[in-house]
Lab assay of single mutants.
Amino acid sequence: TGYYDVLGVKPDASDNELKKAYRKMALKFHPDKNPDGAEQFKQISQAYEVLSDEKKRQIYDQ
């Protein structure tokens, strides 16, 4: 599964769309709200870390 799929956004998503999707998913799977969501929360955080950084995103998109 790709990072875009993890966040539920298209590859041409804007920074604002990425942030909005990340916040929505992070709230849904945060371990405090969803004890079984810890692994998914890590994936969401990693996806956002890469896609929100312009240089990392360019490398990922290659």
Rank of each mutant, 00 (worst) to 15 (best):
1 T>P: 12
1 T>M: 14
1 T>H: 13
1 T>G: 12
1 T>E: 08
2 G>F: 15
2 G>Q: 10
2 G>C: 15
3 Y>H: 03
3 Y>S: 01
3 Y>K: 00
3 Y>T: 01
3 Y>F: 11
4 Y>S: 02
4 Y>C: 05
4 Y>F: 07
4 Y>E: 00
4 Y>V: 02
5 D>I: 07
5 D>P: 02
5 D>Y: 11
5 D>T: 10
5 D>N: 09
6 V>S: 04
6 V>N: 01
6 V>P: 00
6 V>G: 01
7 L>C: 05
7 L>M: 08
8 G>T: 01
8 G>E: 06
9 V>S: 02
9 V>K: 00
9 V>M: 02
9 V>F: 01
9 V>R: 00
10 K>T: 09
10 K>W: 06
10 K>D: 08
10 K>H: 10
11 P>E: 04
11 P>W: 11
11 P>G: 06
11 P>M: 09
11 P>N: 08
11 P>I: 08
11 P>Y: 08
11 P>D: 04
11 P>Q: 09
12 D>F: 07
12 D>Q: 06
12 D>P: 03
12 D>T: 12
12 D>V: 05
13 A>S: 04
13 A>T: 04
13 A>L: 01
14 S>H: 03
14 S>T: 14
14 S>L: 04
15 D>S: 14
15 D>Q: 15
15 D>A: 15
15 D>V: 14
16 N>G: 12
16 N>M: 15
16 N>C: 15
16 N>I: 14
17 E>S: 04
17 E>T: 06
17 E>V: 05
17 E>L: 03
17 E>W: 03
18 L>P: 02
18 L>C: 05
18 L>G: 00
19 K>I: 09
19 K>M: 12
19 K>V: 07
19 K>T: 11
19 K>N: 07
19 K>C: 14
20 K>T: 11
21 A>V: 05
21 A>Q: 04
21 A>E: 00
22 Y>W: 07
22 Y>S: 00
22 Y>N: 01
23 R>S: 09
23 R>L: 15
23 R>V: 12
23 R>D: 14
23 R>I: 14
24 K>P: 00
24 K>N: 12
24 K>A: 12
25 M>W: 07
25 M>K: 08
25 M>E: 04
26 A>K: 10
26 A>Q: 09
26 A>M: 14
26 A>D: 00
27 L>C: 14
27 L>K: 12
27 L>F: 09
27 L>H: 08
27 L>M: 12
27 L>T: 08
27 L>I: 13
28 K>V: 08
28 K>M: 10
28 K>Y: 11
28 K>L: 14
29 F>V: 04
29 F>I: 04
29 F>E: 00
30 H>V: 02
30 H>P: 03
30 H>T: 04
30 H>Y: 03
30 H>C: 13
31 P>L: 07
31 P>T: 09
31 P>W: 05
32 D>N: 12
32 D>M: 11
33 K>R: 13
33 K>E: 05
34 N>K: 04
34 N>L: 05
34 N>S: 08
34 N>I: 06
35 P>W: 04
35 P>V: 07
36 D>F: 10
36 D>K: 12
36 D>A: 11
36 D>Q: 12
36 D>N: 12
36 D>P: 02
37 G>C: 14
37 G>F: 15
38 A>Q: 10
38 A>N: 07
39 E>W: 10
39 E>C: 10
39 E>Y: 10
39 E>V: 07
39 E>H: 07
39 E>D: 12
40 Q>L: 14
40 Q>E: 08
40 Q>Y: 13
40 Q>N: 06
41 F>E: 02
41 F>K: 00
42 K>S: 11
42 K>H: 09
43 Q>G: 04
43 Q>T: 08
43 Q>I: 15
44 I>R: 02
44 I>P: 01
44 I>D: 01
44 I>S: 01
45 S>M: 14
45 S>G: 05
45 S>N: 11
46 Q>N: 10
46 Q>V: 13
46 Q>P: 01
46 Q>H: 12
47 A>T: 00
47 A>K: 02
47 A>Q: 01
48 Y>C: 05
49 E>R: 14
49 E>V: 06
49 E>L: 10
49 E>I: 12
49 E>F: 12
49 E>A: 13
49 E>Q: 11
50 V>F: 09
50 V>G: 02
51 L>M: 02
51 L>C: 04
51 L>P: 02
51 L>D: 00
51 L>I: 04
52 S>L: 09
52 S>C: 12
52 S>M: 13
53 D>V: 08
53 D>R: 08
54 E>S: 15
54 E>K: 15
54 E>P: 15
54 E>W: 15
55 K>Y: 13
55 K>Q: 09
55 K>P: 04
55 K>T: 12
55 K>N: 08
56 K>E: 04
56 K>I: 04
56 K>G: 05
56 K>V: 04
57 R>A: 05
57 R>M: 04
57 R>K: 04
57 R>Y: 04
57 R>L: 03
58 Q>P: 06
58 Q>V: 10
58 Q>S: 11
58 Q>E: 09
58 Q>C: 12
58 Q>D: 09
58 Q>Y: 12
59 I>C: 13
59 I>T: 10
59 I>M: 11
59 I>D: 10
59 I>H: 11
60 Y>P: 02
60 Y>F: 03
61 D>E: 04
61 D>K: 04
61 D>P: 06
61 D>W: 05
62 Q>R: 12
62 Q>K: 11
62 Q>D: 07
